[in-house]
């Protein structure tokens, strides 16, 4: 289980082979091999600066926006080579959505926040269709009951947890296949965190989710597979249960028991 190849029977949604990421001259990731199984939650854990967020952001090429960032190796979404020159980044990011660490709703109405993605991708033919997408996404994100009657209000006026669920609804509205979450709960209180975790658990029936988290408990609660990163390399990956109860690498053992990190 030293390598990241999936051993379970679940089909692989995204896969990374020998991925190196550089920021200028500095190498942030070295030879990452990892499979992300479909319709499940994969947690990326590791101490700060280990490269887990960098890896996450290379899955939908958000790293392209960082100056001096280079990615080598192969990342595949189904059979599509993500870093192939022919790939349209806009299309890729529609298929691989993202939720960020800090809730970042647009300073527009709740409705506009959710409707923006479908609109730029032309997913709705009519106003009714768009309304339906907005309602469905907000329902999926568990936000409809709270904001369904005030869609015209500003998205930034919501509480932190609601804002983050709004961001999730916004990502869902584009109908992505994979959702990347970069420490989605780190700015939230425990109750809001519990909400988001429940939501993630529901979403994995339909979506493939990759989540970066600093919280061991969160990784253990929400994920089926866990990958442990340390100093730019993928130390160990496997079923979450195995990683947390019977890790095969000493460093993993040390990290999850709190000896470093």
């Amino acid at each position: 289980m030293q390598n990241g190849y999936s051993t379970s029977n679940a089909p692989v949604k995204m896969s990374a082979r020998k991925v190196d990421v550089f920021y200028g001259d500095k190498q942030a990731l070295k030879g990452i091999d990892l499979d992300v199984p479909a319709r499940s939650v994969t947690a990326l854990i590791g101490p700060s600066g280990c490269g887990k967020s960098t890896f996450l952001r290379s899955l939908n090429r958000m790293n392209d926006t960082v100056r001096g960032c280079r990615v080598q190796g192969e990342i595949k979404l189904d059979t599509l080579d993500v870093y192939d020159n022919s790939v349209d980044v806009v299309q890729l990011r529609a298929r691989v959505g993202m939720v960020f660490q800090k809730p970042n709703p647009f300073p527009k109405s709740i409705y506009e926040n959710v409707a923006y993605g479908p609109r730029i991708h032309g997913l709705a033919e009519s106003r009714e269709e768009l309304d339906a997408i907005v309602e469905k996404s907000l329902k999926q994100a568990g936000l409809w009951k709270e904001v369904g009657d005030r869609l015209a209000e500003g998205g930034t006026g919501l509480s932190g947890g609601q804002q983050q669920r709004l961001c999730i609804a916004r990502a869902l509205a584009v109908s992505p296949e994979v959702i990347l979450m970069d420490e989605p709960c780190s700015a939230l209180d425990p109750i809001a965190t519990a909400h988001i975790e429940e939501l993630i658990d529901e979403l994995r029936e339909e979506y493939t989710i990759v989540i970066v988290t600093h919280s061991m408990q969160q990784a253990a609660r929400v994920s089926q597979r866990t990958a442990f990163f340390h100093l730019g390399i993928l130390v160990e990956t496997g079923d979450t249960k195995t990683i947390f109860t019977n890790p095969s690498d000493e460093r993993t053992q040390g990290y999850i028991t709190g000896r470093f990190g």
Binding site: R93, G97, M98, V99, F100, N104, F106, P107, I120
Partner: peptide, 27 residues
């Protein structure tokens, strides 16, 4: 304009020009 706004738009699949014209410029 905070970079998180640009990232939010780019993360949804907006092109860089769309991110600027729809979100950054109005702000």
């Amino acid at each position: 304009v905070p970079p998180s706004i640009r990232q939010a738009a780019l993360g949804l699949g907006a092109s860089p020009l769309q991110a600027v014209l729809h979100h950054v410029l109005p702000l």
